[in-house]
Structures are given as C-alpha cells and as structure tokens.
C-alpha cells in the first residue's frame, strides 16, 4: 500500500470518533443532495408531462375525407404557435374512452365508435394564444367544435396546474439547492476542523518530517488522502441509502402517479440516473476533500 494511504488509514483507525463525525456529516449531506436531485428531476418530469399535454382538441365533422384532415393537420403543424399535433381517429377515441372507464363495464359497453368524433389534438406554445387560435380554427369548414380541454376537472385550467407545478418545481430547486448548499458548507467546515485537529496532533511529526527533508507534498499527502477517504465513504453511503429508499418507494410511486413519469420506469434508466448522480457527487466530494485539506494545511502553516 502507498505509504501515505497507510498513514491516512492509521489516523482514521486511531481517531475513530473524528472519522465517524466526518463520515456521518458527509453521509447526511450526500443523502439529502441525492434526494433533492431526484425530487428536482421528478418535479420537472411532472411539469414536462403537463406542459406537453394536448390543450386544444378540435373535433371534426363526420364523414370528411382524409385529405382534408391531413390538410388541416399540416396547416396546424406549420403554425408556430402550435406544437405536438396528433390525429385521433374515431376508433382511437373509443379505445381511450374504454381505457378510462375500464373499471366500469356498464359505461364502456354503452357506447359505439360512431358517437365519438375524430379529432386533432395539439398543445400551445404559450397559452395566451388560445383565444385567437380557437377562433381561427372554428372557421375551418371540417371543424365541428373546438374544446379548450385545459381543464382538469373542476374549474382549474391546465395553465393553472402548470403554473402551480412550475412554482412548486422552482421551490424544490431553490429551497433544495439552498439546503444542499448549507449542508455542503457544514461538511466542508467539519472536514476542515477535523483535518485541522489532525494537523495539530501531528505537529511533532510534521516538524520532524520537515527537518529530514520531506517536501510539502509529502507532508500533505496523508492528510489529503484521509479527507478523501471520508468524502468517498460519505458520498457512497449517503447515495446508497437514497438509492435504496427510492427503489423501495418506486412501485408505490409508479402506481400512484400512473402514467406521469416521476421516476424512470425502466430500471436501467433509473440506475443510469443514479449513476450520474453518484459520479457528480464523487466529484463534489473530492473537491471538498482536496480543497478543505489544502485550506486546513495552509492555515496551520501560517500560524
């Protein structure tokens, strides 16, 4: 083993309470950072889901030719106020209805495809275009009715929901970010304090090493390694606990939120997301460890 890592490890073993304090603080910090990141991800997923839901449904008259339908569809697609245009045929409309009423066979058996009109659904780039656009589309000859579906039961419009979600999502990002920053700073300070204690308790040794010709790097290395041991351990444990928690909660999250992708449904993607978070956290941890120990070393030296 590298002599510096061995020295660092000896220090950890000889002062287990200091080591535990450092590791606990880092564990909590990175547990919270992981959870906040996941919450941030989920809230933006939910937001995206609602933002991209069709907001305007154009019900088409019966018995019109496919050419006319695609003409209107093309026209809408070309309109830069409009996004995500899709055509729903009578049969698809029935399917959707059947799915929605799956729990109630009486309702689903009552209907035949003919009572559902075909429709063109689309979202608006900005909800403020809604009135003008709806008026324009009503003038199209194949259009029967235009529904501004952006109401999710009750009098709440989709734009209200989206706005509320956006605020919520921002709170998570700002509040969570501030909290994460506070914890990160605490970890940083704890690391500096503990490394400073280590420097003080090693003062005699450092003096000797200096006199027998050790370079500053040689003297610093075990201390930096020690901080890195704390950081890596803390990051890993905090991340692992968060991962286990999310894995444990995923089935109920998925069944609660249904088709809203609050967490990636496919396991590979979920692990990909967590892998990414772990990578970023290792970098943050390394940065804290290295900069904290260098700062502590410089401070002790100046005294």
């Amino acid at each position: 083993m590298n002599i510096h890592i061995k020295t660092a490890w000896d220090h950890v073993r000889r002062a287990p309470f200091q080591a535990m304090a450092a590791i606990f603080v880092l564990t909590i910090t990175f547990f919270v950072i992981t959870i906040i990141t996941i919450l941030g991800y989920s809230s933006s997923q939910v937001l995206k889901y609602f933002e991209t839901r069709p907001q305007v449904i154009t019900f088409l008259k019966d018995d019109i030719t496919p050419e006319k339908i695609s003409a209107l569809q093309n026209k809408l697609e070309a309109d830069n106020r409009v996004s995500e245009v899709s055509y729903i045929s009578k049969e698809q409309a029935l399917e959707i209805y059947k799915k929605a009423t799956a729990g109630n066979p009486l309702l689903s058996e009552l209907v035949s495809p003919s009572i559902f009109p075909a429709s063109l659904e689309f979202s608006l780039v900005d909800l403020s275009y809604a009135n003008d656009l709806i008026e324009e589309i009503k003038g199209e000859e194949i259009v029967d009715q235009v529904g501004f579906t952006a109401s999710l039961g009750g009098e709440e419009t989709l734009s209200d929901v989206v706005n509320r979600l956006r605020t919520f999502s921002n709170y998570i990002k700002i509040g969570g970010g501030a909290f994460a920053l506070l914890l990160t700073s605490t970890s940083f300070l704890v690391l500096i304090v503990i490394i400073g204690m280590r420097m003080t308790s090693r003062r005699g040794e450092i003096e000797v090493l200096d006199l027998i010709g050790a370079t500053p790097g040689f003297i610093r290395s075990p201390i930096i390694y020690e901080a890195i041991i704390y950081a890596i351990t803390g990051v890993f444990i905090g991340w692992l606990i968060a991962l286990l928690l999310v894995l444990y909660a995923t089935p109920s999250l998925i069944s609660y939120f249904g088709e809203i992708p609050v967490v990636p449904k496919d396991t590979l993607k979920l692990f990909g997301l967590f892998g990414l978070i772990l990578g970023a956290e290792f970098l943050i941890g390394l940065f804290l460890a290295v900069s904290g120990s260098i700062l502590a070393v410089l401070r002790v030296k100046r005294k």
Partner: peptide, 11 residues
C-alpha cells in the same frame, strides 16, 4: 530546494 538540501544531511 530546501527539502533536497535536507535530504543530503542526516540530523
């Protein structure tokens, strides 16, 4: 260069 100097000297 001080470390290099000290490495040449036993104390």
């Amino acid at each position: 260069q001080i470390p290099r100097l000290r490495q040449k000297i036993g104390v």
